[in-house]
Design a protein around this nucleic acid. Structure first.
Lengths: 147, 147
DNA sequence: AGGAGAATGCAAATCATTTGCATCTGGCAC
DNA sequence: GTGCCAGATGCAAATGATTTGCATTCTCCT
């Protein structure tokens, strides 16, 4: 917790230096995002932020998320058929595996895939701005849990 | 053209056998999809289908696309920040590269990436239901065409 | 040809997200 | 510290893509 608070504080002043006003609602969202170990969507972030700033509006949440995204502080993921999910940029790059039965999101990273992607783009005269790799998966040989 | 008509006809009777009624609007969409060499979105498909069935409604287009998708006849792609785009399933599997400046979609395929994906999922106890790999790219070393 | 049930068109509903606008509030200037 | 003002907030209404309810119209089976 202390660790998270320290990072959040550093981030906060960095943002202020970048000309981003740190309002109560933004501070709340920053800490909520810093604590999140999952990939929450906007509404869920609002719910969590309400614990700190009751009455925070959904539009503010969206506006703040957009701002933080363009500041490179968070990432926005648009998985198939669901609202966007957000994640802070403290972690190193990784891709996602989405369990189609539960909706659970698992992270993974693989250098070889990254390199192959760059090679492919390169070979066709492009450079990668960003990419999206999502594996929609199902637990193997489960004895029929859902359907 | 003859080639496309033949395939469309075969597809049509296969669908009928599967219990899918072939209405004028569905037939129109099937041929429009068969002829498409790009990745059109629903509205564009409606526009093209109007040439054959004037007055075809957007809801019918959507309903038909959903039906054809579940019949495995077409694929629905949801690229970042744009309406869904559709593509018939005649071609072999491939992924997409999206030029962020022009919106142009380029297809590519790479066996090694496919294999790596399967391995990764496997190693974590999952099997892949489907995946999404999109490279958002920019032309290399272009002397500033857009911004 | 006749009819049952499915498909269509239209308008209205949804869902996630954005925006207009009047009101509030950070954070620098003094 | 106090005041100011550009930028941020909350609310409600707008947007954009897609879906849905319902009355009407077709498809295709017999």
């Amino acid at each position: 917790m202390n660790e998270i608070d320290r990072r959040t504080e550093k981030l906060t002043s960095a943002l202020r230096d970048a000309g981003v006003r740190i309002t109560r609602q933004r501070a709340a969202l920053l800490s909520v995002l810093a604590e999140a170990e999952d990939h929450p969507e906007a509404i869920e972030l609002q719910r969590r932020a309400e614990g700190v700033v009751p009455g925070i509006s959904l539009s503010t949440v969206y506006r703040t998320l957009t701002e933080l995204e363009s500041q490179g502080v968070i990432l926005r993921h648009q998985f198939a058929g669901t609202p966007a999910r957000f994640e802070h940029t403290e972690t190193t790059h990784h891709d996602h595996m989405i369990d189609v039965d539960t909706g659970e999101v698992v992270e993974f990273a693989n250098d070889r895939i990254e390199r192959l992607q760059a090679e492919i783009a390169e070979a066709m005269g492009y450079e990668i701005v960003h990419h999206r790799l999502e594996l929609y998966v199902r637990r193997k040989s489960s004895t029929r849990t859902a359907e």
